[in-house]
């Protein structure tokens, strides 16, 4: 296996240019959403709005204003599949369409996927969706094709501010630590890494954030769907056992009641005969 590879996205230097979104669409030949008809979100300068089957990179704009609209802050974050070390989508996929590659990334093989959509509801980050063009679930592949040829993924290649950095995970982790240290020294003490080993065994696409995860639309404690498998299956099995037992006991009781009634009738008849 090759070395685990991934993205480190430093949101403090993202300028929201969306070059990554465009580079991703170009390289992966993803069509414009809605056939290229431009629709506006109406409540934000962000008109991409979300990741889906045709949008594998999405620069989130977090536009914060106070009541008087005097104070404002813009946070920008280029969102993408997190290529989780413990991946919920890979866990639930029934067809084996979702695989882990030699680079420790998670890829959906669109020739295998049959569109059951289990992965969509399993992803803790809402990354995956169906691409209406081919009807299969799609998401970022971390440019698996480019990586196999030794190239940098299109988004990281296009990023003008190096907000998106690509490389071996161990190297990126060290770089991220140094950057957090540097920001703390400069007075930005809120800076921290989202996606270390405490989250799903580590996110191979991790982030430097300066506010709570929820502010960026990220869950603070994402979990694997399989956390529920054993309890849910056991409770159902217990229910089945209880219903089976209920059936057994009620049918036995019915038989016993009938035998008792028959005996009573027989006894009465016998009594009647002896009288005669």
């Amino acid at each position: 296996m090759a070395e685990p590879m991934g993205f480190f996205t430093d949101t403090t230097v993202c300028i929201g240019c969306k070059a990554c979104e465009v580079a991703c669409k170009e390289w992966n030949q993803l069509p414009a959403t809605g056939g290229g008809v431009n629709t506006l979100s109406g409540d934000s300068y962000d008109n991409t709005r979300r990741l889906d089957g045709q949008t594998w990179r999405h620069v989130k704009f977090i536009e914060q204003f106070d009541e008087s609209r005097q104070q404002s802050r813009w946070l920008m974050m280029s969102d993408v599949c997190k290529h989780c070390v413990q991946a919920g989508c890979l866990e639930v996929c029934p067809t084996g369409a979702i695989i882990r590659t030699e680079f420790d990334t998670v890829v959906i093989q669109s020739d295998v996927c049959n569109g059951c959509r289990a992965c969509i509801s399993a992803c803790p980050f809402g990354v995956i969706d169906i691409n209406p063009v081919n009807g299969t679930a799609m998401k970022c592949t971390l440019c698996y094709d480019r990586m196999q040829a030794g190239l940098t993924p299109a988004c990281a290649q296009a990023c003008p501010t190096q907000s998106i950095q690509f490389g071996p995970i161990s190297e990126l982790r060290a770089r991220a630590e140094a950057r957090v240290q540097q920001l703390h020294e400069q007075g930005e003490t809120r800076a921290y890494i989202y996606g270390d080993e405490s989250i799903l065994g580590g996110l191979n696409s991790f982030y430097l954030l300066v506010d709570e995860p929820e502010v960026y639309g990220l869950p603070s404690n994402p979990k694997l769907p399989s956390r529920n498998t054993a309890p849910a299956a056991s409770l159902s099995a217990a229910g089945a056992a209880a219903l089976g037992l209920l059936g057994l006991v009620s049918l036995r009781k019915r038989r016993m009641d009938r035998l008792a009634a028959d005996r009573k009738v027989a006894a009465t008849e016998e009594g009647g005969e002896s009288d005669a």
């Binding site: 639930v92 509801s121 803790p124 994402p222 529920n228 299956a233 409770l235 159902s236 229910g239």
Partner: peptide, 16 residues
Amino acid sequence: SVTNRPLWSDTPLLGL
């Protein structure tokens, strides 16, 4: 329940 969706994955009792 074996998803990450609201309601469904917030309880292990739906199977029962």
